[in-house]
Design a binder for these strands. Structure first.
Ligand code: FES
Ligand code: FES
Lengths: 182, 182
DNA sequence: CAATAACCAACTAAATTAGTCAGGAATTCT
DNA sequence: AGAATTCCTGACTAATTTAGTTGGTTATTG
């Protein structure tokens, strides 16, 4: 199991999704602008996340990505593993043929360590990070700074799709604010 | 904190050192042959391990590398950190200036996760792996297969340096066996 | 002196990461 | 129906990292 910037981007983006999940789909364009990651690169990462069944894509205007499962059931380990396909812990990939057909020390060492590490990261869920004090507030502040009226826009769409109970006044208010910016 | 093959090689090599530590210095040439890693690449890795104070080099014939501390006081985390200098957990490297001078969500997330991970790997020492049942035997088997008479050679040298209490008969026996191979 | 083995620096090749480009397909809004 | 939005796809490029190479120098032993 590797731990690289690739996995970091993915976890970061998934966190973003988890925070805004109540407000409906989040577009990659928003995440890209917000976190300073290239849009197309995000698309590549999300292609894998989708294939792994961690997120669901919703096409068309008002669409975006949503968590396929509750944030409390998505672990950091799952996210990292799904983008880092190269999970060859050992050199022999299972069968101990590294040294004249026999297991080398490395084999035992890394399967063991890797298991422990995986176990550890499996115990940490997205929800645990979202619920940390301060995070929702911090997120909302930044959303406003870059003119990201996620709530209004998504909930407006949500009416049509009949997915959420929404506050119509709030929607109208934020949509007006968005217009005023233009 | 990254977790790559580079760190893996280092941990593997350090394990080798720890196993044979009783018998004195281990040459990089031995590790190279034994584990199939390029000699010069190992040299690069050990340069860092030495600068981090994890190993000590002993020059000249009979020399090699030794652990600078007991295996029970060297953690996996230390090894990985010393070769993976690129420990920029966040993009901002400390000060939260990532997004218009303010901390981004990522900042909190990764310092937090990284701390936990580091803590976890700090709790695992080299000694814990050396002492796992089967490892010393497995190691000795392989040593013989590639004609690595570590014990005899190193201890013969050790007499001169007055470092160890040695079994002279064993030394003579293995040295004879080595000669016979040629 | 010759052999050994750590040390050192600069260079190359392969792989991975990060980003770009140019479109296509599903969905919604007007 | 047509325009706008957004996911989705594949192929291509640049930068960085990993892995290995070459060609030495220095300390130590015998
Ligand atoms: S890595 Fe599995 S036997 Fe060497
Ligand atoms: S990474 Fe530290 S503020 Fe963004």
């Amino acid at each position: 199991m590797r731990l690289s910037t690739k996995g970091r981007y993915s976890v970061t983006a998934m966190l973003d999704l988890a925070i805004h999940d109540k407000a409906g789909p989040v577009t990659l364009a928003d995440i890209s602008q917000c976190q300073g990651i290239s849009l197309s690169y995000l698309e590549q990462l999300f292609a894998r996340l989708r294939k792994s069944g961690l997120v669901k894509g919703v096409r068309g205007p008002g669409g975006g990505y949503r968590l396929a499962r509750p944030a409390s059931e998505i672990s950091i380990a799952e996210i990292i593993c799904s983008v880092d396909e190269n999970v060859d812990v050992t050199r022999c990939k299972g069968e101990g043929n590294c040294q004249d057909g026999g297991k080398c020390l490395t084999h035992e060492l890394w399967t063991n360590l890797s298991n422990k590490l995986h176990e550890f990261l499996s115990g940490i869920t997205l929800a645990q990070f979202v619920e940390r004090p301060g995070i929702p507030e911090l997120s909302m502040q930044r959303d406003k700074m870059i003119g990201r009226f996620v709530l209004a826009k998504k909930q407006a769409v949500a009416i049509n799709r009949g997915v959420f109970n929404i506050n119509k006044e709030l929607v109208a208010k934020e949509l007006a604010a968005k217009e005023a910016l233009r």
